[in-house]
Design a protein around this nucleic acid. Structure first.
Length: 423
RNA sequence: GCGGGCGUCGCCAAGUGGUUAAGGCAGCGGCUUGUGGCGCCGCUAUUCGGGGGUUCGAAUCCCCUCGCUCGCCCCA
């Protein structure tokens, strides 16, 4: 292929699509604002260490999916594979966490070197939130409800909320030891991937899809039974609050999530219309992360929505590009300049005006006016220049009779013109 | 990273070894340089993702490569 093309897994978002993106972004921004969130923007590029230390050396993301390279100063840099680590870093770096609880949101591209497929790209977009210093299980539920309501208000039904508790890090350590011990006796029965995971990241065995491993898991120790009292009370409190908000959920004891920093509440919002990439939104609590990155112990919770997956679900439910209010037909030396001036005035009054720049025949320009779906055609030619008029004509009226409306286009009449066009 | 399917114009496609690669939509030009929508006419792929091979002859068969897609892994 001689033609230059985008890198694998890097996708252009074309004008036809950006309309939908903007609409979604607008709704998200409004809702997050209503919930007291403030936007934070962090660099796309960070020191590699940030991700390996927060996400975990043994995770797939860090192990094989990062875009990592050395810059000219020989620093190891990585294109962010997710948002949380950067937000924590920025919050620490600028002392945000010393100023009380923080509700932050972010959006933008993330990068993971994976094999692309439906709902998965190498550059993809997330919109996410991170809260700091909010401890109560009710905060978990508030945060979940914000994601749930956002998706709901975009018209998505048919979603499922899956919930689990990973307990405190002590709980998890105890459980991990038990699990490793239990599986070591049954090592030969495990699938190859899970044998590998037994070394690196034993909890990951829980969401193995291998049938044999799955049936083994039915008898294996269950994480829930290793939660200390405090942890399981917390888990129950989360469930109670969800019920109070009447948000339906399903407990999934095998929901582990691939990033090491999660603790206690972990959740995913999934759709069955997404093939094997079912998760539209994933998140959870990460109480140890801030400390792990050098801050003082601060609780954290957040989620991220995958924009591309959201777009798949939205499909073509929202209409395409909007057509202009006015298509401005103009022809002749002086007329074209007058049209330029008038178009600018109309735009200043928030009219969507498409100015024909071709100087082609009136018939031709009318044809374009019609095709672009404009509500009105406005005409300015030599005749209009001499009389100081413009003509407007309602398009798509299906009447053959001429509907030319004539009037003066002096500055004083601009309001009258606008009133007619807005009709 | 591993396995399956696919790749003909901007889009949807016919064609499965034999003279100039259908058709539809969109686009452009004309009939109509002061009036669009309808109609009619014309134009738009020296070439079938790219490269190599087999053959008198390849979009059609073989190999390699790139891309897309689906599944696995994992995640948003």
């Amino acid at each position: 292929m001689n033609q230059l093309q985008s890198l694998r897994g890097m996708v252009d978002i074309l004008p036809e699509q950006t309309q939908l993106w903007q609409a979604v972004e607008l709704v998200a921004r409004e809702q997050l604002q209503c919930a007291g969130f403030k936007e934070i923007r962090t660099p796309l590029l960070e020191v590699t260490d940030l991700f390996s230390r927060s996400i975990g050396e043994q995770t797939d993301v860090v192990g094989k999916e990062m875009y990592t390279f050395s810059d000219r100063g020989d620093r190891s840099c990585t294109l962010r594979p997710e948002g949380t680590a950067s937000v924590v870093r920025a919050a620490l770096e600028h002392g945000l966490l010393k100023q009380g609880p923080q509700r932050l949101w972010y959006g933008g591209p993330m990068f993971r070197y994976e094999r692309p497929q439906a709902g998965r790209q190498r550059q993809f977009h997330q919109i996410g939130v991170e809260c700091f210093g909010m401890n109560s299980p009710r905060c978990d539920v508030e945060v979940i409800s914000i994601a749930w309501d956002l998706l709901d208000s975009l018209g998505l039904n048919d979603l499922a909320l899956e919930l689990n508790s990973l307990g405190s890090s002590e709980d998890r350590n105890r459980y991990r030891n038990k699990l490793v011990e239990w599986f070591q006796d049954r090592y030969e029965e495990l699938d190859v991937d899970s044998q590998q995971r037994l070394q690196n990241n034993p909890l990951r065995i829980l969401d193995s899809k291998d049938p044999k491993t799955q049936s083994l898991l039915r008898e294996a120790p269950v994480l829930e039974e290793y939660l200390c009292n405090e942890s399981s009370e917390r888990f129950l409190a989360v469930q109670d609050s969800l019920k109070a908000l009447q948000i339906p959920f399903k407990i999934n004891p095998r929901l582990v999530r691939g990033l090491d920093y999660y603790s206690h509440t972990a959740f995913e919002i999934t759709s069955k219309h997404l093939g094997s990439q079912a998760t539209v939104c994933g998140g959870g609590r990460y109480d140890g992360l801030v400390e792990q990155l050098g801050g003082s112990a601060t609780s954290g919770i957040g989620w991220a929505i995958g924009m591309e997956r959201l777009m798949i679900l939205l499909g073509d439910s929202i209409s395409g590009p909007t057509s202009p209010d006015v298509y401005f037909i103009n022809r002749g030396e002086e007329a074209q300049i007058k049209a330029l001036v008038l178009a600018r005035k109309l735009r200043a009054a928030s009219m969507k005006v498409e100015l024909d720049g071709s100087g082609a025949s009136f018939a031709k320009q009318f044809k374009r006016a019609d095709r672009c779906g404009a509500a009105w055609a406005m005409v300015l030619g030599d005749d209009e220049v001499s009389t100081g008029q413009v003509r407007i004509k309602k398009l798509h009226s299906h009447k053959d009779s001429s509907e030319k409306i004539e009037f003066l286009a002096s500055a004083n009449d601009l309001d009258r013109l606008l009133a007619l066009l807005r009709d």
